[in-house]
Design a protein around this nucleic acid. Structure first.
Lengths: 199, 199
DNA sequence: TGTACTGTTTAACAGTGTTAAATAAATTTA
DNA sequence: TAAATTTATTTAACACTGTTAAACAGTACA
């Protein structure tokens, strides 16, 4: 009867190995490199065996996503418990959130649907800078008569873009908020930043 | 010799048809549904013909990305030209940016690497709400003694999250900013929002 | 008319997720 | 212990993916 336990333990271990192997492959070659056969190679089995443990590739991604959220929650709690005042807590928590995103970059990607540049050279594409340039100019004008340094304008620009792009991403990937909430968030953020630019 | 022109015109048209067909397929079934054979079906050719016009599938995505940036830039310009004051211009431009993202949702996705929930049920996963709950609570506490409504807290939360998630996405998908710039943007935004919460 | 060239398709390769059938190993039963 | 049954694992296959090479058709030119 103890052998039943041992077998169950072994099964649980393989289940875990599959996740570990997946993450390893992704860390080495990105999410596109992840395939059932490569996972099988890594755990020294053949592909169909994986289906004894997970119903599909999606189920594996799902489990990794779940683990990601759990880990993030844990780190947020730890950050919170390092402080007493709510404002300090919030600051520490968002800082922990930021650190998590880059320490566990692959998990964050699958958790929030951030795809790393589908066509690699999108960054070398001059057209991709046109929207930025247009808005950049208006920010510069808004700061007049003070002539902002490149760094200053850059910070303003990215603050704007982050709010908008973040809100858009969240609405696209997850269920969306109500339209009113979105507009409220946008209005609050944008007018806030504009005020901060004008001093 | 005019026939040469006609043939060139036809080629240009097919080049364009390929893009149109691609976008149509994506709008109907999402980016995963896009395949060379389906594009070929749509333009009533066989798959290898596409390689006479685009070097690879990636090249097609790239061209769509380019068109996206051009369209976005155009709409930003139009928004700007509807106003005179820089602050009004900025507001209109970001509003146009927002509208573009959802009017041309597929283009926005390929432009900025926003993948729509890889494993569809991530939203039904209770763990995915743990990080939000943790931060939610601290925001509520920060607002004390005023007891915020659900809507109020929600707006604060999403304002925070948008800034952070937006900045993270941008850094992951494109080339990153310098660390100092990131930290500056983060600090500015977070302290700003915290201040606005405390009134 | 025959030759070169261009447009287009068929066939194939290597890869993907996934499933069904075949086989090997272990366990239970007689 | 030997046979029967169950479990673990693999091989083979299907339908799909992007991509390429070879075959075929059609047009233009000599």
């Amino acid at each position: 009867m103890a052998s039943k336990d041992r077998i169950l333990r072994l099964k649980e271990e393989t289940r875990c190995n599959i996740l570990d192997a997946s993450l390893k492959i992704v860390k080495e070659g990105g999410w596109d490199a992840l395939s059932m056969r490569k996972i099988a190679d890594e755990i020294e089995y053949t592909a169909p065996i994986i289906y004894e443990y997970y119903a599909s590739k999606d189920a594996i991604l799902m489990e990794l996503t779940r683990k990601g959220f759990l880990l993030l929650a844990k780190q947020l709690e730890e950050a919170r418990d390092r402080h007493r005042l709510p404002e300090k807590q919030l600051q520490a928590m968002w800082s922990a959130y930021w650190d998590f995103a880059f320490a566990e970059r692959e998990l964050y990607q699958v958790m929030y649907g951030v795809r790393v540049s589908c066509c690699e050279m999108a960054k070398i594409m001059p057209e991709s800078e046109m929207p930025m340039d247009l808005i950049w100019d208006v920010i510069v004008e808004l700061m007049l008569p003070h002539v902002g340094t490149e760094e200053e304008v850059c910070i303003k620009y990215y603050t704007f873009w982050s709010v908008i792009h973040g809100l858009i991403s969240i609405n696209m990937v997850n269920r969306g908020n109500t339209d009113e909430t979105n507009q409220e968030v946008l209005k609050t953020a944008i007018t806030g930043i504009i005020r901060s630019i004008k001093g």
